[in-house]
Design a protein around this nucleic acid. Sequence first.
DNA 1: ACTTCTTACGTCATTCGTAAACATC
DNA 2: GATGTTTACGAATGACGTAAGAAGT
Lengths: 309, 309
Amino acid sequence: MLERHEIETFLILAEELHFGRTATRLRVTTGRVSQTVKKIERRIGAALFERTSRTVNLTPIGRQLAADLGPIVSDMEKALRRAVTAGRGVEGVLRVGFMGAAAGQLVSKALNVFGPRHPECAPQLVEVGNADVGTLMREGEVDVLVAARPFPGVVLGPVLMTEPRVLAVPAAGPLAAEEFVPVAALTEHPVLQLSTQALHGVGVTRQSSCIPEGEELLIGPSVSTFSEMLTMVGAGRGVVPVGAHVASYHPRPDIAYVPFCDSSPVEWGPVWLEANETERVRAFVRAAVDANAPVPEPVGADRAARPTS
Amino acid sequence: MLERHEIETFLILAEELHFGRTATRLRVTTGRVSQTVKKIERRIGAALFERTSRTVNLTPIGRQLAADLGPIVSDMEKALRRAVTAGRGVEGVLRVGFMGAAAGQLVSKALNVFGPRHPECAPQLVEVGNADVGTLMREGEVDVLVAARPFPGVVLGPVLMTEPRVLAVPAAGPLAAEEFVPVAALTEHPVLQLSTQALHGVGVTRQSSCIPEGEELLIGPSVSTFSEMLTMVGAGRGVVPVGAHVASYHPRPDIAYVPFCDSSPVEWGPVWLEANETERVRAFVRAAVDANAPVPEPVGADRAARPTS
DNA sequence: ACTTCTTACGTCATTCGTAAACATC
DNA sequence: GATGTTTACGAATGACGTAAGAAGT
């Protein structure tokens, strides 16, 4: 394989047919061009240029090689540009995933800021019901996900919103009457599990963070969808800690939502694979923060001072 | 544009997904692989591999780039191989041109040696009647030409055969009766000119080499083909110096061939553009010399000592 | 004499290997 | 502790510019 500078020297000389101009375009000296070309010719075993001190011309072999190499180099530059654009550019497609209606709200507001700010980027919304999020991200199906955290995998992300954690309990059960419930209740009542590869452990992890040391979560039946989970709760088969917004998004006569008295709040925010971080992702996160962060009341000159990116 | 070693490192790591094996294949250390990959990623602006200390995997961007770059590199190697084969290899096509029947004989004998010696090479015979030889060679239509020399252009070549120079004269003219003719006759009788771009001046050059100092060739009418030239001679419109073989190849009642008494012999041999010299050309010239050179009578051990290449 | 390609040589950038640090299983 | 990736640093390859040379106009 030829070195980059050899290929470039050859192709530019093949185009210019003049050592001086070639050297100028390459920002090197004519001597360098001469030596580089000669080196290639030694490698090939034949002259690529027919040259006197006054004229330079391609030999048949040189002409063939230039014809072959030109499109190849062009394609390579294209491939590289594509990668750079994907990594450093903001244009292109950004796949934003979200889990749950509350996340949808956050994403929606974020895109209201992101859209006008980056008209050359086409955001795609992807509802991630209950899928293998890790795989989705690794495959590139989702660039960034907005969901309740802490999230298990190898991921990152700032907080966009918090809400109280409440416990979904059967309306007919004893807990429904309580005004507050302690986290310790999760050790006494079976906690439903959303069973998915990706979400395996999410519920546990999310909840275990607020369970007293030494206590064990009481694992309940597994369910595969969110609505199935609520049905199970209504049927008295278990309880499940959720964000407070679920009470208003999913009001059901057979379920009561009881606030925890001692639980940390649920944190919502963007989450992505560190390896998949691109400029698009960073731009979206900035937009999401700007759109959802509690904006300080604009008073006088403060408004102009507020950072926009 | 990425450097060669960067592209190779990236593609091999994308294939192996393992720094150690990649380093082994590249004959470098793992540290080098790590730094090279990191450098590319800085250039791209995003990670190409998602790696822990135990696993290496392509990111979506890395996967895309590998898919783009793989065929490109493959094509580039193909193009390079093609050029190297054309330059250094003997296989492929060798276009041998010849001017005149005598040259055809020489080429024929040369190919009898060349053919068995290089069965992977396909020689193509090209009769070069009276064309722009320089252009033919520069365009690659003819790799090597066998003809009478000295030849004008920027060319080379050893001598395969010599023959006396004779003068074609009208059978009815006064010169026809002479047993020998001096070169000085060319200054007294009009010399026909084969008019072609490439051959412009060939006749003059070839002949002038044997004309006395200070004397001027008497330029006669121009003709465009060899047979036309002979016809003109027969018609008494001029004379033309040719090789002795013409007397037997083109015997005509209206023409007499009178030997020069003081001319240097005509030299026949291969001729090619220095810039177009390839291994194929060298191999053909070797074969031509071996086939046509006066072979020393093989006597005893001398035969084995004779070089064959 | 002037332009243009080639060659020689000293300098410097970049890549290389060595080796130690760090992370994960 | 074994395996595997990252980082630090001195050494060497090789690309560079300078400058002189050769060849043709």
